[in-house]
Design a protein around this nucleic acid. Structure first.
Length: 438
RNA sequence: GGCGACGUCGCCAAGUGGCAAGGCAGGGGUCUGCAAAACCCCCAUCGCCGGUUCGAAUCCGGCCGUCGCCUCCA
């Protein structure tokens, strides 16, 4: 079985082949840090955590970049509203989100870049786009991307320019040459954060940051670019346009988008006033309950979320955990043992087959629950546990032998001491080390 | 109006051509001093209509419904 991944660009599941064998370059759009993060953000981070963990399980080395948009209109507006410095607000929510991710058991991304720390790379990229005539500078010092210079524009969201503009409800800047052009750089206004650039002081537009960060931390071409499906247009569409016009190469191999978390049938959002923050969630529930809920559904589909779903998740998680209770029976051979071993094999195959199919965590979970039943049945039949630690103890002792050869006595002793705490007594002899359960 | 997605048991939710996974809830048992847990059994023909096919939840067309995007958004 080989992994296939659904690619938003082609609308198809495609075999997963990386640019560099054994390595995955993955960029995932993180939040704009102007307010409390909600469970929708948590869902997205968890989805891509599953992706990363499975890729690593398959032996890939994953370089995972997740950005923070810490320079943005909303942050500035917020700052003005509450009379605080924009960068202080951003810093506060960045730290909060990082701490929440770790509470959600999401693996730390390899790099957490922020716009405010990537300005030189952004300026360099904008300059390059101006130089190649893909962008232009206005009288007031804004820089816009000239969308018409990209013949492929619209390929991700499958929009034609006319379609994209038909529903435009925002008043366009009078300085733009064309309605569809978008800002790469915004000239500074009094009291706003700004940086020097060849076009005067200003700050980056929204889309350019991800392109610049991705380029800087992962190179011209990446394997996976991820985010919520609300980012497909215009954010990711614009990212592709500016990046590919800049590098002349295809940007991301696989575009992955998670579905929106739905609260009572609606997307959860600030404007609808129906959001549940991550802190609220974690105050009332184990993080793994939420991970269970996310895993229970295909990541591209909308995820239903309400009190009932939380109760179900709570119980499903409990069932998974009860399977892990220690087995103390005496049975070590026979049909009950064989049956369990058989189910272990079957579940592993089913689990990987599901995950290989575009990270079908719900299917993988089903395989796990089949294993739960088999484990419980075996325990009821008196099957013993504990035999399986032997290979691990042997492995530790092998490592310890190496340490002793290297005269790393402190570490070698530490392993012996810690094993003793766990009930494994190690005895060193001239013939080597032996061990027994205390 | 345009683009895209979805509609599977009471609830959540897998499944893209061959007799519908899994979790929760529910019913009936086993076990148990009681309770819990666990185990066993039961519980859906897949929004509607038509078409293609030996055969469709799975493909095509139409209809109805829901949702996302088109403006900041995971």
């Amino acid at each position: 079985m080989a992994l296939v991944v659904y690619n938003t660009l082609t609308h198809e599941k495609e075999p997963f082949v990386t640019i560099e064998p054994g390595k995955v370059r993955m960029y995932v759009c993180g939040p704009t840090v102007y307010d409390e993060a909600h469970v929708g953000h948590a869902m997205s981070s968890i989805v891509f955590d599953f992706v990363r963990r499975y890729l690593e399980h398959q032996g890939y080395q994953v370089r995972h970049v997740m950005n923070f948009t810490d320079v943005d209109d909303k942050i500035i507006a917020r700052a003005a509203q509450i009379g605080e410095d924009p960068s202080a607000i951003a810093r506060r929510y960045v730290e909060q989100y990082q701490e929440q991710l770790s509470r959600l058991n999401v693996l730390q991304p390899t790099v957490f870049p922020r716009v405010s720390q990537t300005i030189p790379e952004i300026v360099r990229m904008v300059a390059g786009l101006v130089e190649s005539d893909h962008a232009y500078i206005t009288a007031s010092g804004d820089v816009y991307f000239r969308v018409r210079t990209d013949p492929d524009y619209g390929k991700l969201s499958r929009r034609k320019l006319a379609d994209a503009l038909a529903g435009t409800r925002v008043a366009s800047s009078e300085e733009k040459l064309e309605e569809e052009d978008f800002a790469l750089w915004k000239a500074a206004r009094p009291g706003e954060p700004s940086w020097d650039s060849p076009w005067g002081r200003g700050r980056p537009g929204w889309h350019i940051e991800c392109s610049a960060m991705s380029l800087h931390y992962l190179g011209d071409q990446i394997d996976i670019h991820g985010g919520g499906n609300d980012l497909v247009f215009p954010h990711h569409e614009n990212e592709i346009a500016q990046t590919e016009c800049f590098t002349g190469k295809p940007f991301a191999r696989y575009w992955m988008h998670n579905g929106m978390l739905q609260l009572k049938g609606e997307k959860m959002s600030k404007s609808l006033g129906n959001l549940v923050t991550i802190d609220e969630l974690l105050a009332a529930h184990d993080a793994d309950v939420f991970r269970m809920i996310v895993a229970g559904s295909q990541y591209r589909k909308p995820l239903a979320f309400d009190a009932d779903v939380l109760v179900d998740g709570e119980r499903a998680l409990a069932r998974l955990r009860t399977a892990l209770r220690p087995a103390t029976g005496p049975v070590t051979t026979g049909p009950a043992v064989d049956a369990l071993a058989g189910q272990v094999r079957q579940s592993r195959i089913a689990f990987e087959a599901a995950m290989d199919d575009d990270f079908n965590t719900a299917g993988a979970l089903a395989a796990l629950f089949d294993l739960v039943r088999a484990i419980n049945t075996a325990r009821d039949a008196g099957v013993a546990a504990g035999q399986s630690i032997a290979p691990f103890v042997e492995l530790l002792l092998t490592v310890r032998l190496e340490l002793r050869k290297a005269q790393q006595w402190a570490l070698a002793d530490k392993i012996r001491d810690e094993l003793k705490v766990l009930g494994v007594v190690v005895k060193d002899t001239a013939q080597g080390s032996s061990w027994r359960m205390d």
